Structures are given as C-alpha cells and as structure tokens.
Amino acid sequence: MAEQPEIVIAPSNAAQSRAWDGDQGEFWAERAERFDEGVAAYHELFLDAAEIGPAARVLDVGCGSGKVTRDAARRAAAGWAHGVDLSAPLVDLARVLAQREGVANASFERADAQVHPFPTVDLVLSRHGAMFFGAPRDAFTHLGRALAPGGGLALLTWQPAEHNPWMGGFRSALSGGREGAPPVDGPGPLSMSEPAVVRALLESAGFERVRLDGLRERMYFGRDAADAFRFVTGQFSGLLAGLEAAQRERAEARLLALLTEHESERGVLFESAAWLVRARRP
C-alpha cells in the first residue's frame, strides 16, 4: 500500500474511517471484483440516469475500487472524474486499475467527502456510499457547495429491508435470529431507505427537484453455494466471532442452506431493490 497523507476526518465519521481504512477496507479491496459483480445489474442503469456529459466534471463519493469513477470518466472523455473514499486500500487499488485500463482522466484520493475542500464539479455520484455519512445533512450541504449552479446529484441507495431479503437473511442465519436487518438510523445501508427521509434530507441541504425511482434487480453472490458461502462469511465475519465451535457450526449450516436455496444456472442470486435518487443544485 502506498503511504497516504494525513487527511481531515469529521468527528462523526471517525468510526467509519477506522473501519474502512482497516480490516473492512482490506476485505473489500481483496474482493473488489466480487463486490462489483454483486451489483452489476444496477451499474449501467445508474450511469445512464446520471446523464454524464462529454465534458462533465464528476465527483464520485465513496468510490471504493473505482468502477463507477472509471466508467464515468470514459463517458466524460473531454472532462474528468475524481473518486474519493475513506479507505486507503481501495483508493490504492482504484489507481492501479485506472492506470491498467488506460483511463487517464480518472483520479483518486483518500478523503472525507463530508469536509474535504473540492473544486467545482458538475455532477456528484455515489453508488451505495452516501448512506454511511455520520452527519448526512452536513455532508450533502458541503457537497452542494461543490456543485456548479444547476449541477446534479445521483445516488444509488438501498430500499427498506423487506425488499432486500439478503440483507436480513444473512445476518439472521449467522446469528441464529439474534440479528436482523441493519438499523435505519445512523450510518448504514438502510439510512437512506425511506423516501420521505431522503427528500427531507436533501431539501434541507439545499437541493431541489428531488426524485426517487425504484429499481429491482437480482444481486450476485457467487458461482454456487460454496463459493457464495466463503464470500458472505468473510463479509459478516463479525457475527461469527466469539461463537463456540458448535454454535459456529450451526450458524454456518443455516447460511449454507439459505445460499443453496438461491442457487441458479447463473449462480447464487437474491432479489434486491434500490432507490435511484436524483436532485439538482439551484
């Protein structure tokens, strides 16, 4: 990993920074291709809806390994796309992949998008990243200031847990029912799942013409149940930590059974649902 300069982290994002710049970020970097494959059905829909112009200046928030940033840069061939993330391992990987693929107008930086000083941009994107802000109103107000007048915001966020059975299903299987879907309050995958909450948040941050469109696609978790099992147990390893051997064996058996139920000719697939959120700066 390249040495990273010190950056300013908002106090409300300190826990997220420790996680994403630590073991969680390492796990995502090691399995970046699998994470992109998981939500691949949403990818082109998201980019098309963002309406990236050929000379656009694009900011990708929570860019991860940079798939969205690179493809946005390709669409903005006479402009550029800049990806930011709290995870040094993911930012390092994003740079390597952009160089390998020859996407010269894509750049990456470890930064806290809630407080980092950005140049003026035409479009802010975030694919499943904006849900993790510690102080969402502050974050979106700050990002709005970076947008040129009339600039656009395009987000992909998860719909409520009942439309994403994988989300609570994995946690319940591994915890024996003690854990269900993640909470809707605080940073997390469901923090922007309720349309009224999203509209109120973005309007309070100064955005207008807020629009949410529902998308439903299948998520991919592996070639077969065994392959998906290795991936999911790694992602949710915290739920297995500290279990006695017999408890762990039962938890793993429950998960494997659930994954086996969702095997298909195309691999292990689960129904999922996301919001395509769009808004404009006045």
Rank of each mutant, 00 (worst) to 15 (best):
L239Q: 07
R209K: 12
E203W: 09
S191L: 04
A241Y: 14
R254D: 08
P183R: 01
R266D: 15
R248Q: 11
A226S: 14
R254W: 02
R223P: 13
A196M: 15
Q247H: 13
E194Y: 00
G214H: 10
R199Y: 14
S264G: 07
S193D: 00
A196L: 11
E208I: 15
F236C: 04
P195R: 00
M192R: 03
L201Y: 00
R211M: 06
H262M: 09
T233R: 04
D185I: 06
T260Q: 00
E194Q: 03
F229D: 10
R209F: 10
L255F: 01
G186A: 04
L258P: 03
E265M: 13
G238N: 12
Q235C: 09
P195E: 08
F221P: 06
E261A: 05
T260W: 01
D227N: 03
R254E: 12
V210Y: 06
Q235W: 02
A241K: 15
L215C: 09
L269V: 09
F221C: 01
P183M: 00
Q247S: 10
L212A: 12
G238D: 09
A246T: 15
V197W: 09
R230L: 12
D185G: 09
A228D: 01
V210K: 05
Y220H: 12
A200N: 14
G234A: 01
A181T: 13
R178C: 08
E179M: 09
P189E: 05
S191K: 06
L256Y: 04
A245F: 09
A196C: 11
S191Y: 00
L255N: 01
M219K: 08
Y220E: 05
G186M: 00
V268H: 00
V198M: 03
E217Y: 11
G222P: 13
R223C: 13
R230E: 14
A196Q: 15
E249D: 13
G214M: 08
S264H: 02
G238H: 11
R230A: 14
R248E: 14
V268I: 09
E252T: 12
P189H: 12
G206E: 08
R216N: 15
G238P: 04
F221L: 10
R211A: 12
A205R: 05
R254P: 10
L255S: 03
L190Y: 12
G206N: 05
E179T: 13
G186C: 03
E179R: 09
D224R: 03
R218K: 14
G238Y: 08
A228S: 05
E252Q: 11
D224V: 01
A251N: 04
R209T: 11
E249Y: 12
D213L: 13
L201H: 10
A245T: 14
L240H: 06
P183Q: 07
A253T: 12
S264Y: 01
R254M: 07
R266W: 13
S204E: 06
A257T: 10
G267V: 04
E203Y: 11
L212C: 13
P189K: 06
L201K: 02
E179L: 10
P182A: 05
E203L: 14
L269Q: 11
R216H: 15
L269A: 07
E217W: 07
G238L: 04
D213H: 09
A253P: 02
